[in-house]
Amino acid sequence: MIKNDNIKITTNDLCVFYDEKQALFDVNISINEKETTALIGPSGCGKSTLLRCFNRMNDTIENCVVKGNINIDNANVNNPEIDVVQLRTKIGMVFQKPNPFPKSIFDNVAYGPKIHGMAKNKLELEEIVEKSLKQAGLWSEVKDRLSQPGTSLSGGQQQRLCIARAIAVRPEIILMDEPCSALDPIATANIEELMDELKKEFTIIIVTHNMQQAARVSKNTAFFHLGKLIELGPTDQIFTNPKLEKTQDYITGRYG
């Protein structure tokens, strides 16, 4: 089992419903601080749904109901009194398809700090942008064309721009929803390298279809099937010696 000394997130009997359809069944999971946790499982198993519960992204879906507790730093995220705006400054998110805003590269990164009033003046803002882009490994590529639209970058660069955009707000947790599924292998390698760097500072939760990716980047892995958490454990153990047959079947590609 996972060592439980530095737990960042725990969920308590988490259930999610879309209208009548239940997408998650009594999920109890704990995620460690400053480590990378991968969520794997076949399509439609609820891993993305779980990810979107952490920053209450499911609020934007009209017919979605979330029950149960999600505790981040001992505060229940699912409490309606929680301000999602503040919650999301603490939990950044990177999406499946790179989604830079139709603005300049600079404005894309500066967007979060600007709306949250994190920079007192323009100089500070520029500092934040530069730092974030450097951290996302994009600075050297774009430093001469910060005023060009973010959409003019290549797919991999766009995704790194989105990561820079997310870390510019200085979150504690970064949620990644299949961040490489729309990218080519080289860009994917770049992102994976970046994640390795980022985990020193951030808690990362990544949803992925690609099991090699999960094995490469994560320390812990959770396997989901049909809305249920089947197995959670250190990545090495899940991939080499899973406790349950279902996990074994999935890992070895017997179904998926």
Binding site: N74, I82, V85, Q86, T89, M118
Partner: peptide, 20 residues
């Protein structure tokens, strides 16, 4: 509850304004 989650006093003050 909010206090625990919020990163800094600065941001919390501004969010009220933003929500208004």
């Amino acid at each position: 509850m909010n206090r625990i989650l919020s990163k800094s006093q600065n941001i919390e003050n501004s969010t009220n304004k933003r929500h208004r």
